[in-house]
């Protein structure tokens, strides 16, 4: 019935045709899925995209068996501390990064295959009260952690064998960092959002905090997803999990904001609102690849947006298996992965 509600409301209808179902994987041993992701995996001389699924106590690696079927290659059992999330490492092969903890992230581990011992294993990268974490190109991992006195930000350069080759401390802002995002095409630049609703910029090579820029109070608790530098401006894609509905624009799920890093001034470029009606209501969690945003809504639907045009381009209503719980873009934007809590993941080409 959600699809029926949406049909007359979305511009041009729900446009499910922009999502094409490709395949499905089902993990009968998974009672409560917490995350799904993809990883590039090189084996026997070829590189392929594999799916990674996580429950509270397991992380499983899936390989494509045919055009529409998947087989489980390996399951890592992590029984001491619950898995909270999978941390994608863009352009990295044969490494799966996971964050574990009770209420907050307490440690970051790498899961990998060792050809030397012909076995799957894991290694510990970091422990602490970790508030935010992001994987960057070239096997780099940035995290913020908090002690009673101070906030520590660190970039770890990972080795192929799951160790840490180098560490670089980043200068912390006064406010707690809530999220990080890489700047496309600028290897040494990193942006973050803070609890005080600012966007901050670092130089990853030197660790310098270059600029703190106010987002404005209209949209509190903004989370950065991606950033692009173009024509001297820094375009940051933000989501607003707690944004309230306003008469002028409905409920904004994502916004593209242009910052002038020289002056710290900003202006909104585009906002993408939740689909109107009962299908939307609130944004629960989402993911951005390039200029495509995807989010799970409180209605149990997954919505997809063209963030540069501010248009909702597709909606996946809750299916027979119930509400959607997870929405992630595959590496390189190859597919949208939509997951149910029962461990079922469906892949769609967008």
């Amino acid at each position: 019935d959600v699809a029926e509600q949406l049909t007359p409301l979305l511009p041009g209808g729900p446009r499910e045709e922009s999502l094409h179902f490709v395949s499905e994987l089902k993990d009968p041993s998974c009672s409560c899925a917490v995350d799904v992701s993809t990883v590039w995996w090189a084996a026997a001389g070829r590189r392929e995209l594999r799916v990674v699924t996580a429950s509270e106590s397991t992380v499983s690696l899936w390989e494509p068996l045919g055009p529409d079927s998947w087989g489980k290659v390996h399951t890592w059992h992590l029984t001491e501390i619950p898995v909270i999330q999978i941390v994608p490492l863009p352009d990295t092969c044969n490494l799966v990064c996971v964050a574990l903890g009770e209420l907050e992230i307490g440690e970051i581990r790498l899961l990998l295959y060792s050809s030397e011992t012909d076995s799957f294993k894991y290694s510990l990268v970091k422990t602490g009260n970790i508030k935010a974490i992001v994987g960057l190109k070239d096997r780099r991992l940035v995290s913020s952690s908090r002690t009673m006195q101070e906030q520590q930000l660190e970039m770890v350069l990972l080795s192929e064998t799951g160790g840490s080759k180098d560490r670089q401390t980043l200068m912390p802002p006064e406010e707690t960092v809530t999220a990080f995002a890489e700047v496309e095409g600028m290897r040494e630049a990193l942006v973050g959002t803070t609890a005080g609703n600012s966007v901050v910029v670092w130089n990853l090579k030197t660790g310098q905090l270059l600029r703190k820029m106010d987002i404005g109070y209209s949209y509190p608790a903004s989370i950065c997803h991606r950033a692009y530098s173009d024509s001297g401006l820094l375009f940051v894609i933000l989501s607003h999990p707690h944004a309230k509905e306003s008469e002028s624009c409905g409920s904004p799920a994502f916004r593209v904001v242009a910052f002038n890093p020289r002056t710290g001034r900003s202006t909104g470029v585009m906002f993408s609102c939740l689909p109107p009606g009962r299908a939307g209501r609130r944004y629960l969690e989402g993911d951005v690849w390039d200029t495509a945003g995807a989010a799970v809504l409180t209605s149990g639907a997954v919505a997809v947006w063209d963030l540069l045009r501010g248009r909702c381009t597709a909606v996946l209503p809750p299916g027979p298996a119930g509400h959607w719980a997870l929405a992630r873009w595959a590496a390189g934007g190859a597919a949208l992965l939509a997951g149910h809590r029962n461990g079922t993941v469906r892949l769609y080409r967008y």
């Binding site: 130089n203 310098q208 270059l210 530098s229 401006l233 020289r262 002056t263 001034r265 202006t267």
Partner: peptide
């Protein structure tokens, strides 16, 4: 957006801010 809203724009903002920021 116009340049006047955002102030003077520099294509080399990253290098300039890195040179100006405390080490």
């Amino acid at each position: 957006c116009s340049e006047s809203d955002l102030g003077p724009i520099s294509l080399n903002w990253f290098e300039e801010l890195s040179a100006e920021a405390p080490p």
